[in-house]
């Protein structure tokens, strides 16, 4: 059946895409090691680093070599975010989101928050993004709809984009924010754990209530109906219901 083929091909595309991206990530790690020779630790003087970038940076005396890498990461983050915002194909948007999430995780490493970076990768990429990909796949290829989502109100969108960008850049760049003296980066993961179970005990417990309630809420909305419930008013798509719901079982 043509429809099933299309669905299969979408899944294949996504799998191939994921494989390519993992390969890309691996390559990035290798290239990164060659360029900077390990994690960007600010404590280590540049002379002792073996990475290529450090040598180049020392040669031209242009700021910290790790800064160059930062600009690259910022470019990755914002380029991917722009891909999410501007791409006309929802699948490309979803994959661009991966770049944005990875870039933000790298920012956390720069800011001395490695635990947060790992959490970002695990939850955003491992959870949210996979969920989004499933939704994209399930909702755009089951039916014979065009996957493209042409922009609605591009004019107002551009106005908001430029207004936000201008205003927030002035605020972010112009404010003389209070600055602490630079402190050496230390691993504070254990402190976070302690804080969660002492100072932040109440928010921690409330977060668990939220997760439970949301879980049940999501099940209430998405689960297959009880036989007892089937007597309710028929939905417009009752005929195709069984076929459409079969793949949604996989998401749970």
């Amino acid at each position: 059946m043509a429809q099933a083929d299309r669905r299969g091909s979408a899944a294949q595309k996504i799998l191939i895409g994921l494989a390519l991206l993992s390969a890309l990530g691996l390559a990035a790690v290798i290239v990164g090691r060659i360029l900077i020779g390990g994690m960007p630790a600010e404590g280590l003087p540049a002379e002792q680093r073996t990475g290529l970038l450090f040598q180049v940076g020392r040669l031209f005396e242009l700021g910290q070599p790790s800064d160059f890498l930062w600009y690259g990461l910022a470019l990755l983050t914002l380029g991917s975010a722009a891909g999410v915002a501007f791409s006309r194909n929802i699948i490309y948007s979803a994959f661009s989101l991966l770049g944005a999430f990875l870039g933000v995780a790298a920012m956390y490493v720069y800011l001395g928050a490695p635990f947060l970076a790992v959490t970002q990768v695990l939850i955003y990429i491992g959870g949210v993004l996979v969920l989004i990909l499933f939704a994209v796949m399930l909702t755009s290829h089951i039916r014979d709809v065009k996957v493209t989502n042409s922009a609605l109100g591009l004019g107002p969108g551009a106005v908001v984009l430029l207004a936000c960008l201008g205003l927030l850049t002035v605020v972010a760049g112009g404010t003389p924010w209070k600055q602490l003296p630079a402190a050496p980066l230390t691993d504070r993961t254990a402190d976070i754990g302690t804080a969660f179970l002492s100072t932040y005990l109440l928010p921690f417990e409330i977060a668990s209530v939220i997760l439970l309630a949301t879980l049940i809420g999501a099940i209430v909305i998405a689960r297959k109906d009880d036989p007892a419930d089937a007597g309710g008013p028929p939905s417009p798509a009752d005929g195709q219901r069984t076929r459409a719901e079969a793949p949604s079982q996989e998401t749970r």
Partner: peptide, 15 residues
């Protein structure tokens, strides 16, 4: 917490 549960309850009649 209020919002998330409200989303679920607003869509409670899924038929």
């Amino acid at each position: 917490l209020v919002s998330m549960v409200s989303y679920a309850l607003a869509g409670f009649r899924k038929h």
